[in-house]
Design a protein around this nucleic acid. Structure first.
Lengths: 120, 120
DNA sequence: ACAAGTACTTACCCGAAAGTATGTATCATG
DNA sequence: CATGATACATACTTTCGGGTAAGTACTTGT
């Protein structure tokens, strides 16, 4: 897990902004290149680690577990490991995570509209 | 304007992801600490540069104009400068920018729900 | 004995985003 | 003639997210 320095303007601003800006709050949970994609793939149901990996060929393993852990910490998904070998680990969305579908849909419909507009 | 190096894995991945992920598309337009706040302040109507600045005490001038220009480039707002001195410049949302209100609302309602859930 | 499969972990590096500090143009006013 | 107001611009530095490459643990199959 990457350590975070506390006393920087960067983080000070981030916190200030977080408290007043729900958009930034959401970004802090699902921002970055990979999180939305992970969530998207889990919207269709629980998946094994290796299944997610297969579904996202461009992500590195480091990034994948890093984000899976962050999403787990943020209570957007849960991890279930069966104590067998080879390991069998599944990830599923929580209530909170599933509710993001509405947000994602709102973003998607704006995005498609905007892409069309800018293409014309 | 910040120059962008083309041949990096980072940007390669970014482009791959952008084409398939509307969420990332939206993020590329309104991501970062400040853009959503700027948009939020403009939702209540056109504002002068100095008014926006006053409304966002923590942002530096560099960040403010940088993001205003990016938002203008992305056609989310328009800039109107009256040729007088001292300068009088106003910023207003475009159609595209105003349509983001729906997205912002979806995000906000999820954020508040999630904040409450995590506080309990 | 050794490779293969699964789900990670760790050390190191690089580039983009954000922040700091200072400078610029124009004119009105004291 | 110098100060203030407005809306920027630019050089430099720090911070953080992301990427590369390699290693780990445990067991089954050959």
């Amino acid at each position: 897990m990457t350590k975070i320095k506390e006393s920087s303007t960067y983080n000070a601003n981030r916190e200030i902004v977080m408290q007043e800006c729900p958009v930034t709050y959401v970004m802090s949970k699902i921002g970055g290149h990979w999180k939305p994609i992970i969530l998207y793939h889990l919207l269709s149901g629980s998946k094994r680690y290796s299944e997610i990996k297969k579904a996202m060929p461009h992500i590195t393993e480091k990034m994948l577990i890093q984000h899976l852990k962050q999403l787990e910490n943020d209570s957007l998904l849960t991890r279930e490991a069966r104590p067998i070998v080879p390991p069998y680990v599944t990830y599923s969305l929580t209530e909170s995570g599933r509710e993001l579908e509405l947000v994602i849909n709102a973003m998607a419909s704006w995005a498609f509209k905007d892409m069309k507009r800018n293409a014309a």
